[in-house]
C-alpha cells in the first residue's frame, strides 16, 4: 500500500488521537508558550461597554439558559460577566430559563464567585438574586416578573425595589446554546430593554443579523468571546479574572489547526488521485 492509499484510508483512530493531542497538550503546565494574544471583537466589546455605561444600582437580568452540555463554552463568559456586574455594583437577577439542569450549575458557580474575597460582603436578595426555573415558555417570563415557582418574587429582598416589570431592567444578557432567546429579541419592542447574547460558536452566525440591526447590543461568540471578555475585565480593573476560556483558547487554536491540516491533506490526496484518473 503506497502512502497515497494509506492517507486515503487513514484510520479514524489516528485522527482522534491527533485531535486529542491538539486539545490536551496546550493545557499541560509548561506549554504556556503556545498561547497567543487575543484581541476583543467589536461584538464582545459592545457588551463590555454597555455594562461600563451603567450606574451603581442599575438592574441587570441574566438568562442562564444553557445546560452542562455547553458548559465549556458559556460558563467562562457567565463568570466574567457576573464578576464585571458585581464590580460595577449592579443589581443582578439570574433566571434559569431553558432548563432545570442549568440551575444547579449556575447556582454552584455563583456560590463559588460569592466566596471570593472581594465579593464576600455582597448579599443575596440585595445585590443579586436567583430567580430559579419556571417550566414554561420564555414569553410569559418576559411579560412580567410576577412569580417564580415558589411564588415569592418581590418578597425575597430589597433587590426588587424599583423593579416591577422587565421595562425596569437596564440590561439583559442571555446565555444559550439554542434558539431560546428568539422570543426575547421579539419582545424588545414591548419592554425596550437592551439585550445582548452569549452563544456557542456554532450559533454565532444565526444571531449576527440581529446584531447588525441593533436588536442585539452585543454578541459573544463561543469560547473566544468568553476569553475576550475575561481579558477586557482583567485589563480594565487590574485583576486576574483570566479563567478557563483564556486557558482553553490555545486548545481551540491547535484543534482548529489540526482540522485545517486534515482538510488540506484530504484535498491534496483527492487532487492527486483525480490527476491519476482515479475516483
Amino acid at each position: 500500500m503506497n502512502i497515497l492509499e494509506k492517507l486515503k484510508n487513514l484510520d479514524r483512530r489516528i485522527i482522534y488521537l491527533l485531535v486529542f493531542l491538539s486539545i490536551i497538550i496546550p493545557l499541560i503546565p509548561g506549554f504556556d508558550f503556545l498561547k497567543f494574544p487575543v484581541s476583543a471583537s467589536k461584538e464582545t466589546k459592545a457588551i463590555f461597554d454597555e455594562i461600563e455605561a451603567l450606574k451603581e444600582g442599575d438592574a441587570v437580568h441574566i438568562d442562564f439558559a444553557f445546560t452542562p452540555t455547553q458548559k465549556a463554552e458559556l460558563l467562562p463568559f457567565f463568570e466574567a460577566f457576573y464578576k464585571h456586574c458585581l464590580i460595577k455594583k449592579l443589581k443582578v437577577f439570574i433566571y434559569y430559563g431553558a432548563s432545570v439542569n442549568g440551575m444547579g450549575l449556575g447556582k454552584e458557580t455563583v456560590k463559588k464567585i460569592m466566596n471570593m474575597e472581594e465579593f464576600r460582603n455582597l448579599e443575596e436578595g440585595v445585590d443579586y438574586i436567583h430567580m430559579d426555573y419556571i417550566p414554561i415558555m420564555p414569553n410569559i417570563q418576559i411579560f412580567s416578573m410576577v412569580s417564580d415557582y415558589k411564588g415569592t418574587f418581590k418578597k425575597e429582598g430589597k433587590i426588587f425595589e424599583g423593579v416591577e416589570t422587565l421595562e425596569d431592567i437596564d440590561f439583559m444578557l442571555g446565555l444559550t446554546g439554542s434558539g431560546w432567546h428568539q422570543a426575547f429579541i421579539d419582545m424588545q419592542i414591548r419592554f425596550h430593554y437592551k439585550f445582548a447574547l452569549a452563544v456557542t460558536a456554532v450559533l454565532g452566525p444565526d444571531f449576527i443579523p440581529y446584531y447588525q440591526t441593533g436588536q442585539l447590543v452585543g454578541l459573544s461568540n463561543g469560547l473566544r468571546g468568553a476569553a475576550e471578555y475575561e481579558k477586557l475585565v482583567s485589563e480594565k480593573y487590574k485583576v486576574d479574572y483570566y479563567g478557563s476560556a483564556t486557558k482553553g483558547l490555545s486548545s481551540l487554536t491547535f484543534s482548529h489547526l489540526v482540522i485545517f491540516g486534515l482538510v488540506l491533506i484530504g484535498n491534496i490526496v483527492y487532487f492527486i488521485e483525480r490527476k491519476k484518473g482515479g475516483k
Binding site: F20, S255, I259, V263, G266, F271
Partner: peptide
C-alpha cells in the same frame, strides 16, 4: 469535535 475532524477529512473536498 472528534467526529467533525474525521468527517471533515473524508468529505470536505473541493469537488
Amino acid at each position: 469535535a472528534f467526529y467533525i475532524a474525521s468527517a471533515a477529512y473524508r468529505s470536505f473536498k473541493a469537488k
